[in-house]
């Protein structure tokens, strides 16, 4: 299969998110209540190493598997888009206790109810697509 490597990377990611309890609703609640360092440690250390990786990509010290320079696309600008969109996502993240990656991990755990969250998320993306021209950026 052409994309086998992405299947394997996905499996690794799913196992990491499971074993570190990042997919637990309680860990997200705890994070937003500032009652545990766990999630801050996970995201913070990932970002700290990520910053070094990005610099190594940009300086061409780490190249991709074909020996080409790795480029990282800049994120779309826009304060309203990122702040309002981000806040709406935050409401859902805290309520469901799961962001998109963990939603799929929890499907793998056999959590039936998370399928309703996934359905809602797909509908939410659909509504965004319908409205995107009318929304301020």
């Amino acid at each position: 299969m052409k994309h086998l490597k992405f299947l394997i990377i996905g499996i690794i990611f799913g196992i990491i998110l499971s074993k570190s309890e990042v997919v637990s609703w309680y860990r997200i609640y705890e994070m937003f209540k500032f009652q545990s360092f766990h999630m801050y440690g996970v995201i913070g250390s990932a970002v700290a190493i990520g910053i070094v990786l990005m610099q190594l990509f940009k300086r061409g010290i780490i190249k991709d598997f074909q020996g080409n320079k790795i480029t990282v696309k800049p994120k779309k600008k826009g304060f309203i888009r990122t702040f309002v969109g981000g806040s709406i996502f935050g409401l859902g993240w805290a309520l469901a206790g799961a962001c998109p990656g963990p939603i799929f991990v929890l499907i793998g755990h056999g959590a039936v109810s998370i399928l309703v969250v996934l359905l809602g998320a797909i509908l939410g993306a659909f509504i965004f697509g319908l409205l995107h021209k009318k929304l301020p950026s």
Partner: peptide, 18 residues
């Protein structure tokens, strides 16, 4: 569950990432 999902889907796409 559904509203949480709606917020996740709409919010991440509006913000451009999760």
């Amino acid at each position: 569950l559904l509203v949480a999902g709606l917020c996740i889907g709409f919010g991440t796409r509006y913000a451009g990432g999760c």
